[in-house]
Nucleic acid binder design. Structure first.
Lengths: 239, 239
DNA sequence: AACAATTGAGAGCAGTGCTCTTGACTTTGA
DNA sequence: TCAAAGTCAAGAGCACTGCTCTCAATTGTT
């Protein structure tokens, strides 16, 4: 092969330009279909129709329905990550509690705005589809990392309160130590374990609301309920 | 119509017997397919094949794929409800904290045993399918009701501790009052709101584990992590 | 034994993911 | 300039899906 494309993956020849554009169009249409009809109803043929092209033609660009799903998965993770990052950065770094609240509101807001894409990320896994870890873990961990960094910053500023020692069993402590090393963070065991629960709780509350688990009409004031949850979770995290 | 069947819906004629048996077989096969391949992959044709019958024949019994899904939904809700009820009843009524822990462990255990069915109940909604409320709410609320009853019993025994008053905004208070009336329960606002969060958190933690959100290999000690979560959530609920 | 309700089979429609072949087009290099 | 190489869209086709309809056979009831 000639030296037409080096490392980065920039667009060089007009062919590559056109190809990249077509793939971008497919992702855009896929995103729309995903948002409108949900993940399991995503159809390559329908995307091809909207693209004004026969179904077999799109296989030149995406390879399979699963690959398109991966593309959309990464797309959605980054969309959520961007929304969360922007919301967190809008609050001064020393207001740890405020930053946590902003993160939580950003997650909920995005989820309510994009229920189908949220379902793709945090709902039941699409049967027969296994997300390729090497392409999805990085964008998929942006929110947790942001959360842990808030906790870590608060801890370093001696503003993270742990109620009591509440030691953690040895095997769990080992897992937490690995996480600490992985993320370059120094939150102690008890608080990191609590942080994990806060993380899961946040998405549990959002999922219940988005997926309609609360039951139709049970909560006429979902905003107030969520704000209450934020306050309790912030306390729980020690913020 | 003759007076062959009265109110309850017992089986009388051999025809009705055979019919009920066939429907039970269909549900059984559907449950297996659901557990093995997931909700979205549930196919009436495949069920028909396993039943040794042509696809159109099963339409004599279930009407549509969505109706089969509803049947399986109710089936799964009741399975989970039975598991939770049994676990809770195995702990003395005065051990409120123990009953809560038993409930939580029962939910997690069932979910890990039946990930696909759990996904049907608490994962992303199946696109294009709307569960008929009149048939699913009763079985679908068994777990929450059990949880709230534990809290209520503890409260009536003056064993439910609310940290501080922490008043609740008016619209939310109205929702909570409605719930209290609906369930014949007298847990005060702050504790009921907290209970809602505990409920969502429990399923958030279970969903994260079942749906693989924690990431492969992040937690080598999931049991310890969940036990920790139970303890924190019990504290949070005031138990 | 005769009748009527119930059932299963089969064909068929419209949709799906995906593969393969064919013919046409564009880019490239000699 | 011109042919080889590379790329592309189209179409046919396979196996699958949900669902409807008709027709014949079976079955339970009278």
């Amino acid at each position: 092969m000639p030296a037409t494309s080096h490392a980065g993956g920039e667009i060089r020849t007009p062919r590559e330009r056109a190809r990249a554009q077509t793939i971008a169009d497919i992702i855009g249409l896929g995103r729309r279909h995903l948002a409108e009809r949900g993940a399991a109803a995503l159809s390559l043929r329908a995307v091809a129709r909207d693209l004004g092209v026969v179904s077999s033609a799109v296989y030149r660009y995406v390879g399979s329905r699963d690959e398109l799903l991966t593309l959309l998965l990464v797309d959605a993770y980054n969309d959520l990550g961007d929304a969360v990052d922007a919301a967190v950065k809008a609050v001064p770094a020393e207001e740890f509690r405020g930053r946590f609240a902003a993160l939580a509101r950003a997650v909920r807001g995005w989820a309510l705005r994009e229920p189908a894409r949220y379902g793709l990320l945090f709902g039941s896994p699409v049967p027969g589809y296994q997300a390729p870890a090497e392409r999805t873990t990085a964008p998929g961990t942006r929110v947790v990392i942001s959360l842990v960094q808030i906790l870590d910053a608060a801890h370093r500023a001696a503003r993270l309160a742990g109620r009591g020692p509440s030691a953690v069993p040895a095997p769990l402590a080992a897992d937490l130590e690995a996480i600490r090393r992985e993320l370059g963070v120094e939150v102690p065991d008890a608080l990191l374990a609590r942080g994990t629960l806060v993380w899961a709780s946040l998405f549990g509350a959002v999922s219940f609301e988005v997926f309609g688990q609360y039951g139709a009409g049970t909560f006429s004031a979902p905003d107030e309920l969520f704000e209450h949850h934020i306050a309790v979770l912030a306390d729980l995290a020690g913020l």
